[in-house]
Design a protein around this nucleic acid. Structure first.
Lengths: 154, 154
DNA sequence: GTAGCTGCAAAACGTTTGCATGTGA
DNA sequence: TCACATGCAAACGTTTTGCAGCTAC
Protein backbone atom coordinates (compact mmCIF):
# COMPACT_ATOMS: atom_id res chain seq x y z
CA UNK A 1 0.00 0.00 0.00
CA UNK A 2 1.57 3.25 -1.10
CA UNK A 3 0.40 6.74 -0.47
CA UNK A 4 1.10 8.35 -3.82
CA UNK A 5 0.69 7.49 -7.44
CA UNK A 6 3.54 5.64 -9.03
CA UNK A 7 3.69 7.61 -12.26
CA UNK A 8 5.84 10.69 -12.76
CA UNK A 9 4.80 14.04 -14.25
CA UNK A 10 5.14 14.19 -18.02
CA UNK A 11 7.31 16.73 -19.76
CA UNK A 12 5.73 18.73 -22.55
CA UNK A 13 7.76 16.63 -24.99
CA UNK A 14 6.67 13.28 -23.64
CA UNK A 15 3.05 14.47 -23.52
CA UNK A 16 3.23 15.30 -27.21
CA UNK A 17 4.85 11.98 -27.92
CA UNK A 18 2.06 10.18 -26.06
CA UNK A 19 -0.54 12.04 -28.12
CA UNK A 20 1.28 11.18 -31.33
CA UNK A 21 1.41 7.49 -30.43
CA UNK A 22 -2.33 7.55 -29.78
CA UNK A 23 -3.13 9.19 -33.09
CA UNK A 24 -4.35 12.41 -31.49
CA UNK A 25 -3.41 15.91 -32.52
CA UNK A 26 -0.85 17.69 -30.35
CA UNK A 27 -2.98 20.66 -29.47
CA UNK A 28 -2.40 23.09 -26.63
CA UNK A 29 -5.43 21.90 -24.70
CA UNK A 30 -4.65 18.20 -25.01
CA UNK A 31 -1.05 18.70 -23.91
CA UNK A 32 -2.12 20.88 -21.01
CA UNK A 33 -4.67 18.36 -19.73
CA UNK A 34 -2.15 15.53 -19.91
CA UNK A 35 0.39 17.61 -17.97
CA UNK A 36 -2.10 18.50 -15.26
CA UNK A 37 -3.30 14.92 -14.86
CA UNK A 38 0.23 13.51 -14.82
CA UNK A 39 1.48 15.89 -12.18
CA UNK A 40 -1.49 15.47 -9.86
CA UNK A 41 -1.15 13.05 -6.99
CA UNK A 42 -4.90 12.45 -7.03
CA UNK A 43 -7.59 11.99 -9.66
CA UNK A 44 -8.92 15.31 -11.00
CA UNK A 45 -12.46 16.29 -11.91
CA UNK A 46 -13.32 18.31 -14.99
CA UNK A 47 -13.90 21.29 -12.70
CA UNK A 48 -10.46 20.77 -11.14
CA UNK A 49 -8.91 20.79 -14.59
CA UNK A 50 -10.87 23.84 -15.65
CA UNK A 51 -9.59 25.77 -12.64
CA UNK A 52 -6.01 24.56 -12.99
CA UNK A 53 -6.10 25.74 -16.59
CA UNK A 54 -7.48 29.08 -15.37
CA UNK A 55 -10.59 28.79 -17.55
CA UNK A 56 -8.33 29.12 -20.61
CA UNK A 57 -10.56 26.64 -22.40
CA UNK A 58 -14.20 25.65 -22.26
CA UNK A 59 -15.44 22.79 -20.07
CA UNK A 60 -17.03 21.22 -23.12
CA UNK A 61 -13.59 20.95 -24.68
CA UNK A 62 -12.29 19.29 -21.54
CA UNK A 63 -15.13 16.78 -21.61
CA UNK A 64 -14.49 16.04 -25.27
CA UNK A 65 -10.78 15.63 -24.68
CA UNK A 66 -11.38 13.41 -21.66
CA UNK A 67 -13.64 11.22 -23.80
CA UNK A 68 -10.87 10.78 -26.37
CA UNK A 69 -8.26 10.03 -23.74
CA UNK A 70 -10.54 7.42 -22.19
CA UNK A 71 -11.09 5.80 -25.55
CA UNK A 72 -7.34 5.61 -26.14
CA UNK A 73 -6.85 4.29 -22.60
CA UNK A 74 -4.57 7.17 -21.71
CA UNK A 75 -6.65 7.87 -18.61
CA UNK A 76 -9.00 6.06 -16.25
CA UNK A 77 -12.30 7.26 -14.88
CA UNK A 78 -12.65 7.22 -11.10
CA UNK A 79 -16.00 7.31 -9.31
CA UNK A 80 -15.78 8.20 -5.64
CA UNK A 81 -19.50 8.79 -5.13
CA UNK A 82 -19.13 12.54 -5.22
CA UNK A 83 -21.70 13.14 -7.93
CA UNK A 84 -19.08 13.63 -10.65
CA UNK A 85 -16.18 11.72 -12.12
CA UNK A 86 -12.48 12.11 -11.60
CA UNK A 87 -9.74 11.13 -14.00
CA UNK A 88 -6.20 9.91 -13.59
CA UNK A 89 -3.41 8.77 -15.87
CA UNK A 90 -3.52 5.09 -16.82
CA UNK A 91 -0.72 2.99 -15.41
CA UNK A 92 -0.46 0.22 -17.93
CA UNK A 93 1.67 -2.73 -16.94
CA UNK A 94 1.70 -3.98 -20.49
CA UNK A 95 1.35 -1.25 -23.08
CA UNK A 96 0.45 -3.69 -25.84
CA UNK A 97 -2.74 -4.83 -24.19
CA UNK A 98 -5.71 -2.57 -23.93
CA UNK A 99 -8.21 -4.44 -21.77
CA UNK A 100 -8.99 -2.96 -18.36
CA UNK A 101 -7.31 -5.91 -16.67
CA UNK A 102 -3.97 -4.77 -18.01
CA UNK A 103 -4.07 -1.41 -16.37
CA UNK A 104 -2.20 -1.09 -13.16
CA UNK A 105 -5.24 -1.86 -11.06
CA UNK A 106 -5.81 0.10 -7.89
CA UNK A 107 -8.41 1.82 -5.76
CA UNK A 108 -8.83 4.81 -3.50
CA UNK A 109 -9.68 5.78 0.06
CA UNK A 110 -11.46 9.06 0.46
CA UNK A 111 -11.98 10.90 3.72
CA UNK A 112 -15.69 11.62 4.16
CA UNK A 113 -14.82 14.80 6.03
CA UNK A 114 -12.06 16.64 4.17
CA UNK A 115 -12.15 14.80 0.85
CA UNK A 116 -8.50 13.76 0.99
CA UNK A 117 -7.86 10.91 -1.41
CA UNK A 118 -5.19 8.27 -1.07
CA UNK A 119 -4.34 5.37 -3.29
CA UNK A 120 -4.42 1.67 -2.47
CA UNK A 121 -1.96 -0.28 -4.57
CA UNK A 122 -2.94 -3.85 -3.90
CA UNK A 123 -5.97 -5.45 -5.41
CA UNK A 124 -6.63 -9.09 -4.68
CA UNK A 125 -10.24 -9.99 -5.19
CA UNK A 126 -9.78 -13.38 -6.79
CA UNK A 127 -12.08 -15.13 -4.35
CA UNK A 128 -14.90 -12.71 -5.18
CA UNK A 129 -14.33 -12.91 -8.87
CA UNK A 130 -14.32 -16.67 -8.89
CA UNK A 131 -17.57 -16.74 -6.98
CA UNK A 132 -19.17 -14.33 -9.43
CA UNK A 133 -17.87 -16.30 -12.37
CA UNK A 134 -19.98 -19.15 -10.98
CA UNK A 135 -23.06 -16.96 -11.50
CA UNK A 136 -22.17 -17.12 -15.19
CA UNK A 137 -20.56 -13.71 -15.49
CA UNK A 138 -17.47 -13.19 -17.64
CA UNK A 139 -15.15 -10.31 -18.58
CA UNK A 140 -15.38 -9.06 -15.03
CA UNK A 141 -14.38 -5.60 -13.97
CA UNK A 142 -14.84 -4.24 -10.50
CA UNK A 143 -14.72 -1.06 -8.54
CA UNK A 144 -13.75 -1.03 -4.90
CA UNK A 145 -13.80 2.32 -3.15
CA UNK A 146 -13.40 3.03 0.52
CA UNK A 147 -14.44 6.03 2.53
CA UNK A 148 -13.55 6.73 6.12
CA UNK A 149 -12.16 9.43 8.34
CA UNK A 150 -8.50 10.25 7.87
CA UNK A 151 -6.32 10.76 10.93
CA UNK A 152 -6.72 14.55 10.82
CA UNK A 153 -10.51 14.38 10.75
CA UNK A 154 -11.16 11.49 13.16
CA UNK B 1 -23.68 -16.17 -2.95
CA UNK B 2 -27.39 -15.87 -3.53
CA UNK B 3 -29.24 -14.57 -6.49
CA UNK B 4 -32.04 -12.67 -4.85
CA UNK B 5 -32.48 -10.32 -1.98
CA UNK B 6 -33.18 -11.88 1.38
CA UNK B 7 -35.93 -9.51 2.49
CA UNK B 8 -39.60 -10.11 1.87
CA UNK B 9 -42.16 -7.67 0.46
CA UNK B 10 -43.81 -5.54 3.10
CA UNK B 11 -47.55 -5.51 3.68
CA UNK B 12 -49.27 -2.14 3.76
CA UNK B 13 -49.61 -2.61 7.52
CA UNK B 14 -45.97 -3.35 8.15
CA UNK B 15 -44.92 -0.46 5.92
CA UNK B 16 -47.00 1.90 8.04
CA UNK B 17 -45.55 0.40 11.18
CA UNK B 18 -42.02 0.93 9.86
CA UNK B 19 -42.82 4.56 9.13
CA UNK B 20 -44.28 5.02 12.58
CA UNK B 21 -41.19 3.56 14.23
CA UNK B 22 -39.03 5.95 12.26
CA UNK B 23 -41.05 8.98 13.23
CA UNK B 24 -42.31 9.62 9.70
CA UNK B 25 -45.88 10.31 8.72
CA UNK B 26 -47.81 7.41 7.18
CA UNK B 27 -48.64 9.11 3.92
CA UNK B 28 -49.80 7.43 0.74
CA UNK B 29 -46.58 8.25 -1.13
CA UNK B 30 -44.26 7.04 1.63
CA UNK B 31 -46.14 3.76 2.00
CA UNK B 32 -46.19 3.23 -1.75
CA UNK B 33 -42.46 3.81 -2.13
CA UNK B 34 -41.68 1.40 0.70
CA UNK B 35 -43.91 -1.25 -0.87
CA UNK B 36 -42.28 -0.87 -4.29
CA UNK B 37 -38.77 -1.03 -2.88
CA UNK B 38 -39.54 -3.98 -0.66
CA UNK B 39 -41.07 -6.05 -3.43
CA UNK B 40 -38.33 -5.37 -5.96
CA UNK B 41 -35.61 -7.95 -6.37
CA UNK B 42 -33.16 -5.26 -7.45
CA UNK B 43 -32.37 -1.70 -6.42
CA UNK B 44 -34.69 0.85 -8.03
CA UNK B 45 -33.89 4.29 -9.40
CA UNK B 46 -36.12 7.29 -8.83
CA UNK B 47 -37.28 6.95 -12.44
CA UNK B 48 -38.13 3.30 -11.84
CA UNK B 49 -40.21 4.29 -8.83
CA UNK B 50 -41.91 7.09 -10.71
CA UNK B 51 -42.96 4.66 -13.46
CA UNK B 52 -44.05 1.94 -11.06
CA UNK B 53 -46.22 4.52 -9.32
CA UNK B 54 -47.60 5.53 -12.73
CA UNK B 55 -46.55 9.15 -12.25
CA UNK B 56 -49.11 9.43 -9.45
CA UNK B 57 -46.65 11.65 -7.61
CA UNK B 58 -43.96 14.10 -8.53
CA UNK B 59 -40.30 13.03 -8.83
CA UNK B 60 -39.35 15.80 -6.43
CA UNK B 61 -41.53 14.14 -3.81
CA UNK B 62 -39.79 10.83 -4.47
CA UNK B 63 -36.39 12.45 -4.04
CA UNK B 64 -37.48 14.10 -0.80
CA UNK B 65 -38.92 10.85 0.51
CA UNK B 66 -35.80 8.94 -0.47
CA UNK B 67 -33.69 11.48 1.42
CA UNK B 68 -35.76 10.93 4.55
CA UNK B 69 -35.63 7.16 4.23
CA UNK B 70 -31.84 7.31 3.82
CA UNK B 71 -31.53 9.47 6.91
CA UNK B 72 -33.59 7.00 8.92
CA UNK B 73 -31.55 4.12 7.48
CA UNK B 74 -34.65 2.50 6.03
CA UNK B 75 -32.96 2.26 2.64
CA UNK B 76 -29.47 2.13 1.16
CA UNK B 77 -28.14 4.02 -1.83
CA UNK B 78 -26.55 1.91 -4.55
CA UNK B 79 -24.19 3.33 -7.16
CA UNK B 80 -23.66 1.11 -10.18
CA UNK B 81 -21.97 3.74 -12.35
CA UNK B 82 -25.08 4.32 -14.40
CA UNK B 83 -25.20 8.08 -13.94
CA UNK B 84 -27.92 7.89 -11.29
CA UNK B 85 -28.49 6.19 -7.98
CA UNK B 86 -30.57 3.20 -7.10
CA UNK B 87 -32.14 2.42 -3.75
CA UNK B 88 -32.94 -0.76 -1.88
CA UNK B 89 -34.37 -1.68 1.49
CA UNK B 90 -31.85 -1.83 4.32
CA UNK B 91 -31.27 -5.25 5.73
CA UNK B 92 -30.25 -4.55 9.27
CA UNK B 93 -28.82 -7.44 11.22
CA UNK B 94 -29.19 -5.53 14.43
CA UNK B 95 -32.05 -3.08 14.42
CA UNK B 96 -30.75 -1.24 17.46
CA UNK B 97 -27.56 -0.13 15.79
CA UNK B 98 -27.59 2.43 13.07
CA UNK B 99 -24.04 2.54 11.74
CA UNK B 100 -23.51 1.31 8.20
CA UNK B 101 -21.54 -1.66 9.48
CA UNK B 102 -24.70 -3.07 10.98
CA UNK B 103 -26.53 -3.25 7.73
CA UNK B 104 -26.58 -6.58 6.04
CA UNK B 105 -23.61 -5.78 3.88
CA UNK B 106 -23.61 -6.86 0.27
CA UNK B 107 -22.76 -5.81 -3.25
CA UNK B 108 -23.94 -6.22 -6.82
CA UNK B 109 -22.90 -7.55 -10.18
CA UNK B 110 -24.32 -5.74 -13.17
CA UNK B 111 -24.19 -6.96 -16.75
CA UNK B 112 -22.63 -4.26 -18.91
CA UNK B 113 -24.78 -5.38 -21.82
CA UNK B 114 -28.34 -5.93 -20.60
CA UNK B 115 -28.15 -4.20 -17.22
CA UNK B 116 -29.25 -7.29 -15.27
CA UNK B 117 -28.32 -6.90 -11.61
CA UNK B 118 -27.60 -9.70 -9.20
CA UNK B 119 -26.68 -9.60 -5.57
CA UNK B 120 -23.53 -10.89 -3.90
CA UNK B 121 -24.15 -11.89 -0.32
CA UNK B 122 -20.67 -12.38 1.04
CA UNK B 123 -18.38 -9.51 1.89
CA UNK B 124 -15.01 -10.31 3.36
CA UNK B 125 -12.59 -7.46 2.87
CA UNK B 126 -10.90 -7.57 6.23
CA UNK B 127 -7.42 -7.68 4.73
CA UNK B 128 -8.09 -4.52 2.77
CA UNK B 129 -9.67 -2.74 5.66
CA UNK B 130 -6.81 -3.56 7.98
CA UNK B 131 -4.31 -2.26 5.46
CA UNK B 132 -6.22 0.97 5.09
CA UNK B 133 -6.53 1.36 8.83
CA UNK B 134 -2.75 1.47 8.80
CA UNK B 135 -2.99 4.61 6.66
CA UNK B 136 -4.74 6.17 9.63
CA UNK B 137 -8.30 5.87 8.37
CA UNK B 138 -11.13 4.94 10.72
CA UNK B 139 -14.89 4.39 10.46
CA UNK B 140 -14.36 2.68 7.16
CA UNK B 141 -17.10 2.06 4.67
CA UNK B 142 -16.56 0.58 1.27
CA UNK B 143 -18.30 -0.03 -1.99
CA UNK B 144 -17.47 -2.97 -4.16
CA UNK B 145 -19.30 -3.24 -7.44
CA UNK B 146 -18.68 -5.64 -10.27
CA UNK B 147 -19.65 -5.42 -13.89
CA UNK B 148 -19.29 -8.15 -16.47
CA UNK B 149 -21.23 -9.97 -19.12
CA UNK B 150 -23.96 -12.28 -17.91
CA UNK B 151 -24.34 -15.70 -19.50
CA UNK B 152 -27.06 -14.51 -21.89
CA UNK B 153 -24.94 -11.62 -23.20
CA UNK B 154 -21.50 -13.24 -23.35
C1' DG C 1 -54.30 23.81 14.58
C1' DT C 2 -49.85 23.00 13.21
C1' DA C 3 -45.93 20.55 11.62
C1' DG C 4 -44.96 18.13 7.99
C1' DC C 5 -46.07 16.52 3.12
C1' DT C 6 -46.96 17.38 -1.68
C1' DG C 7 -47.23 19.39 -6.55
C1' DC C 8 -45.63 22.58 -9.52
C1' DA C 9 -42.29 25.48 -11.49
C1' DA C 10 -37.84 26.89 -11.63
C1' DA C 11 -33.14 26.19 -10.97
C1' DA C 12 -28.73 23.79 -10.03
C1' DC C 13 -25.39 20.68 -11.43
C1' DG C 14 -22.50 17.75 -14.31
C1' DT C 15 -22.45 16.47 -18.84
C1' DT C 16 -23.49 16.35 -24.02
C1' DT C 17 -24.45 18.30 -28.49
C1' DG C 18 -24.94 21.49 -32.76
C1' DC C 19 -22.92 24.73 -35.18
C1' DA C 20 -19.75 28.14 -36.88
C1' DT C 21 -15.00 29.28 -36.65
C1' DG C 22 -10.17 28.26 -35.98
C1' DT C 23 -5.95 25.30 -36.07
C1' DG C 24 -2.61 21.26 -36.81
C1' DA C 25 -0.45 18.31 -40.07
C1' DT D 1 -6.31 21.86 -47.92
C1' DC D 2 -9.09 19.46 -44.91
C1' DA D 3 -9.92 16.69 -41.09
C1' DC D 4 -9.95 17.69 -36.64
C1' DA D 5 -10.28 20.90 -32.49
C1' DT D 6 -12.42 24.56 -30.15
C1' DG D 7 -15.79 28.16 -28.10
C1' DC D 8 -20.22 29.34 -27.42
C1' DA D 9 -24.88 28.52 -26.58
C1' DA D 10 -28.35 25.51 -25.96
C1' DA D 11 -29.96 21.13 -24.31
C1' DC D 12 -29.83 17.12 -21.53
C1' DG D 13 -30.86 14.02 -17.30
C1' DT D 14 -30.63 13.86 -12.47
C1' DT D 15 -31.29 16.13 -8.43
C1' DT D 16 -32.51 20.29 -5.44
C1' DT D 17 -35.19 24.19 -3.99
C1' DG D 18 -39.03 27.83 -3.13
C1' DC D 19 -43.47 28.43 -2.47
C1' DA D 20 -48.36 27.82 -1.98
C1' DG D 21 -51.78 24.62 -0.78
C1' DC D 22 -53.02 20.19 1.42
C1' DT D 23 -52.89 16.22 4.89
C1' DA D 24 -51.70 13.52 8.93
C1' DC D 25 -51.90 13.57 13.52
Amino acid sequence: MEKHCCHSPLSEESAKELLGHSGLNRTKVKVRILLELSKSSRPLSVQDLHEKMKQSCDVSTIFRTIAQFKEKDLIQEVNLDEGFFRYEMSHQENKNKKSPQHNHHHHHVRCRECGDIQQIEKCDLTAFEKAIAKLGFTEMEHRLEFTGLCSRCA
